[in-house]
Design a binder for these strands. Structure first.
Lengths: 339, 339
DNA sequence: TTTCAACACGAAAACGTTAGAGTTGGTGTT
DNA sequence: AACACCAACTCTAACGTTTTCGTGTTGAAA
C-alpha cells in the first residue's frame, strides 16, 4: 500500500526544495529547464496529483457545490441533479449531495456542516417542514457568511438569493385550459396542502384558468392532500361522488392514483374523464393510458441553477442584484386526454 | 458579510493563544475554568464552528464517502443512495456523489479526483463501458493507495474489495420458477448484453430454472438488448412471432415495454402471458396491471455497503479479508401474473 | 576589477486546526 | 533555601500547497 506521494517526498527524493518542485510542476520560469524536466518526469512516474484538501485550504475555495434536496428517490429531483452535475462537471466543480428527508432539523444540520468549509455555495430546494415552519434562519445565516445560494423549485420569497423556478401557475393554467378546450366542463384538481409552495401555485393556476373561462370555482372539486403516502384512499373517496370530466393533478403520483381510482369507479380515461398531471417521469410515459403532463424540464432547471451559482462564485465583482429565473413548462399531450 | 470566525480571530479578541482557544473548546483540563467559560461563551456568540477542510488536512481523513454510480435518474440507484446516506449520516459521514454516465473516462476522472484527498473511501457501481472494456486500473489504483472501496450491484470479480450484491441468479431463478409453477410452459426472457454482469447472471438464473424443471432452452426465446433507448421496437419485433405464455424481464423498463408490446399484439397480461420484471420501482407499483417483480432491496444494499465501508475505515486493524455480501431478493407478486 | 542584472533555487509564511512539548509563576515540602 | 510540583498557559510542528521574498552564483558590461 503506497500512500499518495506529496511534494515534500518528491523534493526529498530529488534533493531539491518543496518550492522548486511546486514551481517546476507549474512550469514556472524561475526554474531551469533541466530541473523542471526531472521533476515532471518523477512526478509523472509516481502519479503525483495535488491534494485537493490542501488546495482548498490554501485557496479558500473548494470547487464544490452543495446540493440539498428533500428526497433522492424522486424523478424530478434526480433530473435536476443531472442538470447540475453536467454543468458543474464542465466548469470544474464537484457536487456533494445532502438529503433533508423533508426534515427541518436535518436541513439545518446539513447546511451548517457543509458551510464550514466543505462547499463554496449551495443549490437547494427546501424541505416541506421548513416551508411549514417558515424558519429560514439557517439559510440566511450561510448567505450572510458570503456563501451564494441558489434555490430551485420550492423557493422561499423571504430569502434573497438567486432562484430558478418554473411558472407553476402558468403551467397549471395551460393544462386546465387544454382540458377546457377539449370538451371538459367540470374539472377537479388534486393538490397538496397550501404550505407547499408549488401546490399552492398550481392550484391558483387552476383557479385562474377556470375564471378566465367563466367557469365557477367549486371548492368541492378541490382536494388538498397532506399525507402523500396515503393519497390513494383519499383520492378514491374524493372521486367517488364527483361527476367530473376533467382532472388536473399536481404531481405524477396523484395523477396515477386518480386514474386507478377512476378505473375502479368504472370511469374510462380519457373517454369519460381527461387527466393531466404535473411533472414528466418514467411513470407518465409508461402508464396505460400514457399520461399527459406539464413538463418541468428538471435538467434545464439544474443546469440554470448551476450556471447561476458558478457565475456568482467566479465573479468576485459581487453585483448584489439577485435574479429569479422563470423557466417555461411545456404541455406534453399523451393518451390520458380526449383530443 | 461576516466571514466565518476562526480560532485565530477568537484568540486575538480574547488576548490568548490559539491553542488556548482550541483547548478550551475541547474542554481540556489544561485550561482554567474561567478561561474555558470565557472562550466558550465568545465562541458561541460568534457561532464558531471548526473548518472542516482544515480538520481534514490535519487528521488526514475527510469523513466523506464518495459514491460513484452510472446514472442518477434511476430508481434503483437512488434507493441505494438513500440507504447509504442514512447510515453515513448516522455514523457521522457525508456523501459526495459523482456520476459516470456510464462512461469509462468520466469514471476514471471522478475516481482520480475524489481520491486526491476528497474522500476516505468509495462505494461504487461501475459504468457499463468499464465492464465492457474490462479496464479496472483506476479502481485498483485507489485501492492500492489504501482507500477502501465497496462495490455494489455491478461488481467486478477481478477487483479485490468488499462487495454487496444480490443473488441475481437466484432471484431470476425464483421468478422463472414461479412462472413455471403457475401455468407457464413457454417462457421468454428479455435481457441485456452479456458484458453487463447482472444481465448475464439473471439470464443464467433463467436458464437454470428451465433446466431444473426439464424445460428445453430455446435460444429463440432469449432477447439480449444492447441499446436500452430503443428497446421498445426491439421488444415488439421479438415478441411478434413468439408463442409464449410467460416472460421474464431483467429490468422494469423491459417489462413495461414488453407488456405494451403484448397489448399491441392483442395478448392479455396476465391471462395470455404472465410477466415478471426485475427491480421494484414506482412504475411497477403504478402500472396496470401492476407488475410482479424481483425486489432488489436497494436501500438495504446501500446500508450494507455503507456499513462495510465505514467499518473498514474505522478499524485500523486492517484484516485484509474482504467479504462479498449477498443480499436476498424477494419476489413481489402483483397482477401481471396468473395465480 | 568592480558592478549588476539574470538565473536558479531555497526559506518562510500562510490557509485553520490540534497535540505534545515547553514556559512561567506560584505553592508546598523538607 | 533548595527543590519539586502544579496550574495555566504559550510555542511549535504538522497536515500539503502556493507564493513572495531572499540569496548565492554566474556572466557580462563598464
Amino acid at each position: 500500500m503506497k500512500r499518495k506521494i506529496t511534494l515534500k517526498q518528491i523534493a526529498k527524493e530529488l534533493d531539491v526544495s518543496v518550492s522548486t518542485v511546486s514551481k517546476s510542476l507549474k512550469d514556472s520560469k524561475e526554474i531551469s529547464k533541466d530541473t523542471k524536466e526531472k521533476v515532471k518526469a518523477f512526478a509523472k512516474l509516481y502519479n503525483y496529483k495535488p491534494n485537493n484538501i490542501a488546495l482548498s485550504l490554501k485557496n479558500r475555495k473548494t470547487k464544490t457545490i452543495g446540493i440539498i434536496i428533500p428526497e433522492i428517490v424522486h424523478h424530478f429531483f434526480t433530473t435536476v441533479i443531472r442538470g447540475i452535475e453536467k454543468i458543474a462537471g464542465d466548469r470544474g466543480y464537484n457536487v456533494i449531495i445532502c438529503l433533508s428527508n423533508n426534515s427541518f432539523d436535518k436541513e439545518v444540520l446539513n447546511l451548517e456542516f457543509l458551510a464550514n468549509g466543505s462547499t463554496d455555495g449551495f443549490i437547494m430546494s427546501v424541505a416541506k417542514e421548513t416551508q411549514q415552519k417558515e424558519d429560514y434562519h439557517h439559510i440566511q445565516e450561510v448567505i450572510s457568511q458570503g456563501m451564494p445560494v441558489v434555490m430551485f423549485d420550492r423557493v422561499i420569497d423571504e430569502v434573497i438569493c438567486d432562484k430558478v423556478i418554473i411558472s407553476d401557475k402558468h403551467g397549471a393554467f395551460e393544462a386546465v385550459q387544454y382540458l377546457i378546450d377539449h370538451h371538459c366542463k367540470k374539472i377537479a384538481i388534486i393538490s397538496t396542502v397550501d404550505y407547499v409552495s408549488v401546490g399552492k401555485l398550481r392550484t391558483s393556476g387552476y383557479k385562474e384558468a377556470l375564471i378566465a373561462n367563466d367557469f365557477e370555482i367549486d371548492e368541492d372539486l378541490i382536494l388538498k392532500i397532506e399525507d402523500v403516502d396515503h393519497s390513494e384512499e383519499k383520492i378514491e373517496e374524493f372521486l367517488k361522488e364527483k361527476k367530473i370530466d376533467g382532472l388536473f393533478a399536481v404531481n405524477e403520483q396523484f395523477a396515477v392514483n386518480a386514474i386507478k381510482a377512476l378505473t375502479k369507479l368504472k370511469k374510462r380515461v380519457p373517454e369519460d374523464v381527461s387527466v393531466i398531471g404535473f411533472t414528466d417521469g418514467v411513470v407518465s410515459k409508461s402508464f396505460i393510458p400514457s399520461l399527459s403532463t406539464v413538463n418541468q424540464h428538471g435538467e434545464d432547471m439544474g443546469a440554470k441553477a448551476a450556471n447561476l451559482l458558478i457565475d456568482r462564485l467566479e465573479n468576485e465583482t459581487e453585483e448584489q442584484s439577485f435574479q429569479t429565473t422563470v423557466l417555461d413548462t411545456s404541455l406534453i399531450i399523451r393518451d390520458s386526454v380526449r383530443k
